[in-house]
């Protein structure tokens, strides 16, 4: 497919705009390098393979989200991590991955991109950057045990289909696990 020059320019302009919105411009991106961030990620389980990425771009070429969202480029996200550009944690793109694992399967260097995304999302959550919609879901599980509150509609439907009662999800179990693993604390950080 041959891009019209004007279209390509438009895409580049938009990408540049997004990077500037994230706090980057040509002059100061080097000063934003955070080697601690880079080393921390490299030391996490699944993080060590990050350095194997040689930027071939098969991930982006395979990505269904990249095909639909101009700014979403897994290859670029990996490069930013390799360089220690910590501001990647603030990018909405982190939460756009559909976790389809296509890049994970195809990477010729064995980089488990979906796992890298999980690491980045976990780190972003620690910084209080969990998206609101995700936080709502977690709070629902905290309250009801499931992401939904089951009610009469479900009961009646199941009765008609001769299904047993909905298994009682223990909200208590979730709350206990959330407390012991520090998830509660993370949610409070968001609230605070």
């Amino acid at each position: 497919m041959i891009y019209k020059k004007s279209l390509l320019n438009e895409k580049m302009r938009r990408k540049r705009e997004e990077l500037v919105n994230l706090g980057y411009n040509k002059t100061d991106s080097v000063s934003r390098v955070d080697l601690n961030f880079k080393n921390e990620l490299l030391s996490m389980p699944g993080g060590d393979v990050l350095k194997l990425c040689f930027q071939c771009g098969l991930c982006t070429g395979s990505c269904i989200v990249s095909r639909n969202v101009d700014t979403f480029r897994p290859r670029q996200i990996l490069r930013m991590v390799q360089l220690g550009l910590k501001d990647i944690l603030k990018s909405e793109d982190l939460w756009r991955c559909v976790t389809c694992y296509t890049c994970n399967e195809r990477c010729p260097q064995g980089v488990k991109l979906t796992d890298v995304f999980t690491i980045l999302k976990n780190r972003a959550t620690q910084e209080g950057l969990l998206p609101k919609a995700m936080k709502e879901l977690l709070k629902a599980i905290h309250e009801f045990g499931w992401i939904y509150e089951m009610g009469d509609v479900q009961e009646f439907e199941r009765e008609d289909l001769e299904l047993p009662d909905i298994p009682e999800a223990s909200g208590m179990v979730f709350r206990k696990i959330a407390e012991k693993t520090g998830l509660n604390r993370l949610l409070e950080i968001q609230e605070g």
Partner: peptide, 15 residues
Amino acid sequence: VNCCGLYVEPANKLA
């Protein structure tokens, strides 16, 4: 039973 944790993984892998 309890929730499988699918939506929890992005926030906190241990949980």
